[in-house]
Amino acid sequence: MNDSLAGLSPARLHELLHQMLLIRAFEESAEQLYLQGLIHGTMHLSIGQEGSAVGACAALRPTDYILSTHRGHGHCIAKGARADQMMAEFFGKETGYCRGRGGSMHIADVTTGNLGANGIVAGGVPMAAGVGLSIQMQRQDRVVLVFFGDGATNEGAFHESLNLAAIWNLPVIYFCENNQYAMSMAIARASKVEKLSDRAAAYGIPGVTVDGNDLLAVYAATQAAVTRARGGEGPTLIEARTYRWKGHSKSDKQRYRTKEEVKEWQERDPIARLVQRMMAAGILTEDAFTQLQAQVETEIAAAIEFARNSPDPDPATILEGVYA
């Protein structure tokens, strides 16, 4: 037990570092494959935000639920999804998590409790209250964590959901990844409130702001919120401050921010920070880190191979899945 590392065991920290590296490598590969024309449509990369995705999910059990966002690749991996079935989904293949019907923006893995990314800003936030109520009414030992961005906090549905979860004491963790921009709209221009977690006061629930690029801080804050939720004390609003290194989507010319600003945030790389902390604590060696990186490369290569070799959906099945 090492208090400076949020009580996480060395083995667990290795797992979490592995997840962060896997997310980074997955998204870098996905971007390359997109540029090569092997993946179509669009995608929203979360490179730079791995600390919040992994730190938040680290505080959850496999049986807990998450609801995710359009920038949800990291959440999906952090909750336990396989890279190969995710990559197959990006390729639109039948073996993908959504049988090629959802793509990047609707990636989900219900077997690991990921009820889905979402193409609508704050789209998952109202559903989270429903999932929380379902858990409460079925007397299950579960919680639901809903990810959303800073942009979502200005949607009306955000207000309705937090209010309801608060009055009904629902086991929901509202996890805001404040990456500073809602597409091009800076949060400072979109909200008069400096700390988005201050909005929790409006619902009579706790709100906390953490450094989203510090996995250990994210984990600790989420852990506290999860404990509250499991104990029947209701929801918590967490704001994790982070930054997306890439544009909003594939069409973004990034006129709304400077290269200097991006560089400044890249120096706060959540992965490099965790590596430093682990090395300083003597639980990660250069060799072990190199090995971890090699392992991730192999995994991604295998995922791409699986995706390429998987069959497309049979056009004869086009009507399937609309109704149960």
Partner: peptide, 22 residues
């Protein structure tokens, strides 16, 4: 519920998705 029609639909969806019959 409070007067919150968006969340009424959201609760129905989320609860139905996870085992209830709202």
């Amino acid at each position: 519920t409070p007067i919150s029609e968006a969340i009424i639909a959201g609760v129905a969806t989320g609860a139905a998705l996870t085992g209830m019959r709202p």
